[in-house]
Amino acid sequence: MAAAAAVVAESLAGYRARAARAVLEQVVLPGEELLLPEQEDGEGPGGTGERPLRLNAGARSRGRVVCGPGLRRCGDRLLVTKCGRLRHKEPGSGSGGGVYWVDSQQKRYVPVKGDHVIGIVTAKSGDIFKVDVGGSEPASLSYLAFEGATKRNRPNVQVGDLIYGQFVVANKDMEPEMVCIDSCGRACGMGVIGQDGLLFKVTLGLIRRLLAPDCEILQEVGKLYPLEIVFGMNGRIWVKAKTIQQTLILANILEACEHMTADQRKQIFSRLAES
């Protein structure tokens, strides 16, 4: 009797938790549990009774698996916290399980350590600037965190300026903190973004699509006009071209890219190239 109950419970667990390998590139929902390849044979739907004998079951290398955004570790279990497609990247070198993450569609930005974002300076108070990054809380930015800044030589930052910076502190319990220098103290393109230009917001998914190394949209946009563009991982894009008209065209194209097929995009780009 007890054995039968155990079997039922096991099959229920097997039904709820799907193998991560099986749902790759498929939609996963928050609350779902995923089984990593290492756990599959032990806890799979087959149960312990029918498990095939493995010669090296114990000696198998347990590579470390990284669970990226949208997934959470709960003890030894892997839970989904966002709705979207499950993605996987093979490990670059050495043994490991690679990286799993959920490619979700969202507009709300949550600060993450290491992200490059565009912020708007909202206040100057003593040693720090308050920067709006679109998160739940404004980020703080020390006036010393600029290239070449010292106590005597303050950076020229005004309220309302746009800042391209990086998060050094970002967690759920603390105020996020930004810097505009890398670990070597160089600006590397961070700091106040120049005058003029246009700032607009898109979804976080589109930003990632645009920043992908093999992004066709960006290559095509680059052929249109001479332009400068800054992408913040918080969904903000700043564009600047020679004229206001060109800037507006670019902003409209990038916004529209969210819901355009490749063919539609090509049509628009060819029409623009003619004009």
Binding site: G68, L78, K113, G114
Partner: peptide
């Protein structure tokens, strides 16, 4: 053997 990482940069 699971490491949490909240950044897309790594992925």
């Amino acid at each position: 053997f699971i490491i949490e990482e909240q950044s897309f940069l790594l992925c």
